[in-house]
Design a protein around this nucleic acid. Structure first.
Lengths: 235, 235
DNA sequence: ATCCGTGCGTAAGGAATTCGTAAGAGTTTT
DNA sequence: AAAACTCTTACGAATTCCTTACGCACGGAT
């Protein structure tokens, strides 16, 4: 579980980092709002903890920036106790708001509550198409070859793309949507790497990579995951 | 948006009920934990607000009961301020915890934050005319031929034109309106490509392309989408 | 009814865009 | 140090976009 912490007080930053690392979380830290946005786009944390009074970009602005391309849970940790501050942050898109000083046990419980729904679908069904089985909860892809199965290694970026596609079966996923969700809100123009990742994915997953059957290109618009036809046809 | 409120203090119950009703929420109230579980199963609320110290079933037990069959957001509103109580409730499955007394504005903001993600992106209904089905959310067009259906491929520009037309059924869409909305405000004069796209659209969508029934030309003005007549005719 | 001008439908071809693939440099991870 | 990963660049092929050209239908006037 990856957590991004942004606070302009180095002392609090270090304290939180140590405490959360001890609990098994993977921690990234940022000293200001701009750095927080950059790190979020880069590392795709499962939770973002924000202070409000940060230099460069205020906490509320960071939330708005995040919400432009991700639904990652945001927990505001601030010294401001006014209801108005809480309302502003929550309405900007924050999911929870804790005031300093706080009880560390409560903070940990709120972190668990916020990250629970991300992990919650623990019994996510395994998606199968062709000779491929994708297990999202185990982050594993199997390819059947005859009787045996071999493990298919996907890079983190390949995995994110596959995730986005497979979870919207038959729907068009625009190139812009993929770019902003994976590389951050500013990447709206593809310089070629999206095509490259699709070539790699197809090489690993498609029966005939040169004639894609499941990871289909929609020319001029984006890509589409086409699952195997169901036996029962609904018209 | 439906909210279930459970509290053993009738006064708080009534106050919350009035306040939230005024905000447009649909409110159900329960005086104890057992009643709360019953009402939740009966009405499937979009949010559950729970007190902790209730008769029959304690708040934590209610949460556990709920979590057995639903992921509905749970907001605990309690007089207990101990971190231990918060941790228990949150770890039992609650999503947020507010201590009494609370600022009503903050409570409302937290309610908005909890219910925000429930609103699933609704799929646009599929438009059908003749043998054609247009699925705008999936960007897919199906053409029925006998029992089977085949995919019709539309180019991006064809999609935009079809989108504009189909979303103004029976209304005249002027040529100028189409040109400016698709090619920008400067293109006010058609040099021939609009006619071309309509020819292509009709070739792909019309039963008899040379005698258009759905994509109709209004001479000198523009074009009009004419849907199939409804079974119930209102004159 | 006939004539004619404007607007519309159709066809063909070149220009521009987009996609797939390969090779390789820079960086990070193992 | 080796391997893996990310991203850039380049080029051919396929698709889409747009221009041009021509024939026909519609409407108004004679």
């Amino acid at each position: 579980m990856r957590i991004l912490i942004a606070d302009d007080d180095p002392q609090i930053l270090r304290a939180l980092k140590v405490t959360l690392r001890a609990r098994g979380y993977e921690i990234f830290t940022a000293g200001d709002g701009a750095e927080a946005l950059d790190l979020a786009a880069q590392h795709h944390p499962d939770l973002v903890m924000l202070d409000l009074g940060m230099p460069k970009l205020d906490g509320v602005e960071v939330i708005q920036g995040l919400r432009g391309w991700t639904q990652v849970p945001v927990l505001v940790v601030s010294g401001r106790t006014d209801a108005a501050d809480k309302v502003d942050a929550l309405d900007a898109g924050a999911d929870d708001y804790v005031t300093k000083p706080f009880a560390i046990d409560e903070l940990l419980a709120r972190i668990r509550a916020l990250t629970r729904r991300v992990v919650a679908p623990e019994d996510e069904p395994i998606v199968t198409f062709g000779t491929i089985s994708v297990d999202f909860s185990a982050k594993q892809v199997l390819r059947r070859r005859g009787k045996a199965s071999e493990n298919v290694r996907l890079t983190p970026t390949e995995w994110r793309i596959l995730d986005l596609l497979v979870h919207s079966p038959d729907k068009l996923v625009t190139r812009e949507s993929l770019l902003t969700q994976i590389w951050g809100p500013h990447h709206t123009k593809d310089t070629g790497y999206l095509r490259l990742y699709f070539a790699q994915l197809r090489k690993k997953l498609e029966p005939v990579p040169s004639a894609p059957r499941y990871l289909v290109t929609v020319l001029g618009m984006g890509y589409r995951f086409v699952p195997d036809a169901k036996s029962e046809r609904v018209v």
